[in-house]
Write a protein that binds this DNA or RNA. Structure first.
Length: 274
DNA sequence: AAGTTCCCCTGTTAGC
DNA sequence: TGCTAACAGGGGAACT
């Protein structure tokens, strides 16, 4: 469940460790990860190059290579990048990059849901099917009350589901959608088009605050997700409603139910609405 | 057309 | 205890 904060933490971790090392070898053990390129062709394209910058667009990781080509990686539920000085292949290591200093970058994904795509340059990558449809970055100026209110007015989705829609605003996954609704005291099944301008203003403010706060704490480590096998985040200790039993504001029992197929936590007393 | 459901997959847990 | 079934979920496809 890496969401924006977890992806950002992975990016920071990678930028610290793997930049400007020549890729001398790539081993691929799970070919279906690669969606728009054959693994053999991918290997031909990247061997001899190095990663010069790693950034993020929504929950997608963009690995910029030294000839400006781009590897776009989505971790989905369980994808992880481990930087290692040992070559030993662990269970679910699906791709191993070898660098010229005999260190390694290993992509590990127990559920095999992750994806990797490869593009000639950043411009083409951003125009690709997967990236072109993405909505605003939550930390951008443009993501403000006006923007959100205009979109919510046009949608009959439940607000919790709306927040998960990456074509509106990127980076929010199930955990933070729950946390944002709670922080705003909004009932997660409120129809988006019923939200007031004030509520949109609050959602924007709390989204930025919660995501920033989580990045600061190295993200949320929950179930089996940690941002690398060496480090874990601790924002899970700050969660107010997700996977909680009791409301920290009023003491009532936190309700768990599925909303559009996603596990949803909320306080019936504090999150009013319909 | 927009909204909803199903599916991919495997480790974990609940239930018998 | 040991098996099976249910569950978790991001995003795309296939539905309504």
């Amino acid at each position: 469940m890496p969401e924006l904060p977890e992806v950002q933490v992975v990016i920071n971790y990678l930028n610290k460790n793997i930049l400007n090392k020549e890729i001398t070898h790539v081993d691929i053990y799970l070919t279906k990860l690669f969606k728009n390129i054959k693994p053999v062709d991918f290997i031909k394209k990247v061997v001899g190059l190095s990663f010069i910058e790693i950034k993020r667009r929504g929950k997608y990781l963009l690995f910029k290579l030294s000839n400006n080509s781009i590897m776009v990686s989505h971790l989905r539920m369980e994808g992880k990048y481990n930087y290692d000085t040992q070559v030993d292949k662990q269970k679910h290591d699906h791709v191993i990059f070898t660098f010229n200093d005999h260190t390694f970058l290993k992509y590990n994904d127990s559920r095999q849901f992750g994806t990797i795509n490869f593009y000639k340059n950043e411009e083409i990558a951003l125009k690709s099917k997967e990236l072109a449809k993405l909505g605003l970055e939550p930390f951008s100026e443009e993501f403000n009350a006006n923007y959100l209110y205009n979109l919510t007015k046009k949608s009959s989705k439940l607000i919790k589901t709306f927040l998960l829609d990456q074509t509106k605003v990127v980076g929010i996954g199930n955990i933070y959608a729950n946390e944002i609704c709670f922080a705003c005291k909004i009932y997660p099944k409120t129809r988006a088009n019923l939200l007031t301008k004030k509520q949109c203003e609050l959602i924007v403010k709390e989204t930025k605050r919660i995501l920033h706060e989580s990045v600061k704490h190295n993200g949320t480590t929950i179930h089996t997700f940690s941002f690398s096998k060496w480090d874990i985040g601790n924002y899970q200790d700050k969660l107010k409603v997700h996977e909680q039993k009791k409301c920290q504001l009023c003491g009532n029992k936190i309700i768990y139910e599925k909303i559009n197929g996603r596990g949803t936590y909320y306080c019936k007393h504090c999150q009013k609405g319909k």
